[in-house]
């Protein structure tokens, strides 16, 4: 499989080159972008919210367990949950989940259009199909996913609060003190940078898998799986590179 990597990468770049060109009709592209924003944003809100609350809750409880009996002050729980959510868990987890939900859906939708000759029909009409199918989805993802990540970070912090303060494991004052301690706005910027990069990877990789799918339902299923697997691998790889890049002095 690895020897095919340059071929796929080249074709992926060519698709992007085609996709990021001047739209034939801004109104139609905008309409499609809004539809995608709704699908990605509203359609994913519940799952992102649920995951975020549990991530925050589990992180809070785990660290209470870890720090119990240590010399580290307990208000650090709020600080750890906040930074974990903002820097790492919310951007990465949200995008990994969205790769499974939104990414595979994009691959199936575009792949289905390819197999049912919808894309050919659009080509014959004179449409730049790569642009019409990829650009609105990418723009929608770049607008909506950072918002989802921000919501996720807030909910994770609230989840941590609910799991630690409400059962009485930690006082309200300690948790809030932790949240306000060592706050660095740069971390929020880092969260948004990660969100944009991950959203771009997830969307374009999924669109690529759908756009070039071969005929047959087996291939469509395979393409959807590959979209999720490759998006996840690339998101984790990008996460590592971004951390190296953004945290180096």
């Amino acid at each position: 499989m690895l020897w095919r990597l340059p071929y796929h990468f080249g074709r992926y770049l060519m698709m992007l080159w085609q996709a990021f060109s001047v739209p034939e009709n801004y109104r139609m592209y905008w309409k499609e972008t809004v539809r995608q924003m709704y699908d990605i944003g509203i359609g994913s809100l519940v799952i992102v919210a649920l995951i975020s609350i549990f991530i925050g809750a589990v992180s809070g409880l785990q660290f209470i367990y870890q720090l119990d009996g240590q010399l580290i002050p307990m208000y650090y729980i709020g600080y750890i949950v906040r930074d974990l959510a903002i820097i790492e868990l919310s951007p990465t987890f949200t995008n990994l989940v969205l790769a499974g939900k939104v990414g595979s859906n994009m691959t199936s939708e575009i792949g289905g259009m390819r197999q049912k000759e919808h894309i050919d029909a659009m080509e014959i009409m004179g449409l730049n199909t790569a642009a019409y199918l990829v650009l609105p989805r990418t723009v929608a993802a770049l607008v909506v996913i950072p918002m989802l990540v921000a919501v996720s970070a807030i909910l994770a912090i609230l989840g941590g609060y609910a799991a630690t303060v409400l059962p009485g494991e930690l006082s309200h004052t300690d948790y809030v003190r932790g949240l306000l301690t060592f706050y660095n706005p740069y971390n929020v910027r880092m969260m948004f940078i990660k969100s944009y990069v991950f959203a771009f990877i997830m969307t374009t990789v999924s669109c690529y898998q759908g756009y070039y799918v071969k005929s047959g339902s087996v291939n469509l299923g395979k393409a959807s799986t590959q979209a999720v697997v490759y998006s996840n691998i690339l998101i984790l790889l990008a996460d590592y590179l971004l951390v190296v890049l953004l945290t180096s002095d």
Partner: peptide, 13 residues
């Protein structure tokens, strides 16, 4: 030139 082409596909598309 494709603006001047119409096509009916096998599965209607």
């Amino acid at each position: 030139i494709r603006m001047n082409i119409g096509m009916l596909f096998q599965g209607s598309a």
